[in-house]
Amino acid sequence: MPASLRILLVESDPERAERVREALAEAGESDVVVFSGRRVLARDVAETMPDIVLVDIAHPSRDVLEELAQATRPMDRPVAMFVDRSDPATTRAAIEAGVSAYVVDGLRADRIRPILDAAVARFHLFQRVRSELAATKAALEERKVIDRAKGLVMKARGVSEEEAYALIRKTAMDQGKRVADVAQALVTAADLLR
């Protein structure tokens, strides 16, 4: 088993950083330094002396890492970090998942790959959990609004709950809108007129 690589993880979301760190530990990589600031400076990277830098592709300071990786002439690379493009399929998967890797020159692709695979998998999982959470929250909010709108229609027109809902749904269909949007408009209007 080769010595553990030093990994610098640049990620401003502490929760996601922690999840990725766990995944890396499971892959046998324990030497992980997390940088959670928004503004990365050259010296932050220099002090860590990483073999690999993993960064959220949308990180505000990613262009700084890019500069560090290419500060020198293309022919000689004393800085010795470069954007990992050793394996097009892995690179593509990484970019789609939202993570990018910079590696020291000469690091073998078979050492990089499991690390990147672990990070990519965790980025995907984290994104999905987050999307699900947001969707659930939005659905709950919408249901509350629809319930209020139903109440308003029942009271104003003296109809049953089913009839009130049918009326809202018909209006939404006629206008090519979502039920939740019609309900929201009704609630907003009722609040204004109160």
């Binding site: 592709i57 949308a58 990180h59 300071s61 990613r62 970019i95 789609e96 990018s100």
Partner: peptide, 15 residues
């Protein structure tokens, strides 16, 4: 895109 490197990757990869 949040930064120029990200934009470049999106174009390179055909997104």
């Amino acid at each position: 895109a949040a930064n120029w490197s990200m934009l470049r990757d999106m174009l390179d990869q055909g997104q």
